[in-house]
């Protein structure tokens, strides 16, 4: 009687030991990543719990920890992020359409733009702050510490990411759609407008929500633009002085008074809640409109 040979990899003691080590190595990676996230969340929630109430969002920042809140920071963040979206989304999506649909790959300037977008996406955010300090806050534009200064700088910061994610969404639209449209006599732009963009829209939306939500959490470039001041009023326009959530949190963390720590933690919980909500919306849209061609 012949027994069938086993097709599984043979088990030897040294193999089993190495397998175990490798498993520990992998689970350490996942475990520490997830564990840090859990610890971080638990830390801010526990520390911030006593201050997590409606007073936090209805009060203005103050030098007295008991009465201080983050109302002007919430409104400031809204102003800055919406203005940033209004500037960076049309520009970024337009650039993505150009690179995907119109640009000829064999021209050197198109390759330069592509390389430049890739490189710009990895420039440290504080460098964009330096750019804003030299040209927008002071210097030629001289707009001061205003909502529009912050929005222009953050727009340049998120632009490369918006371009990259929009290109991916546009590339995912099958070529047969384009060819069908062109064969019926549509021009390139008509094809883009009526076939490519409507089909790429969900992907563009998901990607751009995620890239603009980055602007909501950004602090380093705004520190360079003089945002770290006491603002106890909500912005009234683009030329208004402002503070934003990450900057207000920074200011509460770096305050000499220890009583500001719970306030900082509670403000972090608010910021994270808004970011998670944006993430959830993006994931929901992705799942709802995801198409397979």
């Amino acid at each position: 009687m012949t027994s069938l040979p086993s097709l599984r990899a043979e088990k030897t003691p040294s193999r089993s030991a190495k397998d175990l080590v490798f498993r520990i190595f992998m689970f350490a990676g996942i475990g520490i990543a997830l564990g840090s996230l859990a610890t971080l969340l638990a830390n801010v929630i526990i520390e911030g719990a006593p201050r997590l109430n409606l007073d936090l969002v209805t009060s203005m920042p103050s030098a007295r920890p008991r009465r201080a809140g983050i109302q002007s920071a919430i409104f400031g963040s809204l102003w800055v992020v919406l203005t940033t979206a209004a500037i960076s989304l049309p520009t970024g999506i337009g650039a993505a359409i150009y690179l995907e649909e119109f640009a000829r790959r064999d021209r050197w300037y198109n390759r330069l733009i592509e390389l430049n977008v890739q490189n710009l996406a990895a420039v440290p955010s504080v460098v964009f702050g330096i750019l804003g300090l030299a040209f927008i806050k002071r210097g030629p534009l001289g707009l001061g510490s205003t909502v529009i200064t912050a929005s222009l700088v953050l727009s340049m910061l998120v632009l490369p990411t918006v371009v990259i994610v929009s290109r991916e969404a546009i590339r995912a639209v099958p070529d047969s759609f384009r060819q069908g449209s062109l064969a019926l006599g549509a021009t390139k732009w008509e094809t883009v407008r009526h076939q490519v963009l409507p089909n790429a829209f969900p992907g563009i939306l998901t990607g751009t929500i995620l890239s603009v939500s980055r602007a909501l959490g950004e602090s380093a470039p705004l520190l360079m633009l003089g945002a770290l001041t006491f603002i106890t009023f909500n912005p009234t326009g683009l030329d208004s002085q402002y503070t934003v959530l990450p900057i207000q949190i920074f200011s509460y963390i770096s305050s000499a008074k220890q009583e500001f720590r719970p306030l900082a933690a509670a403000s972090i919980v608010v910021l994270l809640a808004v970011l998670l909500a944006l993430n959830a919306v993006a994931i929901f849209l992705r799942n709802k409109y995801q198409k397979r061609w």
């Binding site: 990543a33 997830l34 840090s36 996230l37 610890t39 971080l40 830390n43 801010v44 520390e47 995620l210 939500s213 980055r214 909501l216 959490g217 950004e218 602090s219 380093a220 990450p246 949190i249 920074f250 963390i253 720590r261 900082a264 933690a265 972090i268 910021l271 994270l272 970011l275 998670l276 993430n279 994931i283």
Partner: peptide, 22 residues
């Protein structure tokens, strides 16, 4: 994977608080 994406989306000021406070 989505949980890792959440970790990637945590603002740096929050990480700064975590480093200083915990």
């Amino acid at each position: 994977k989505p949980v890792l994406e959440v970790l990637a989306g945590i603002p740096t000021v929050v990480f700064g608080f975590f480093a200083l406070n915990f």
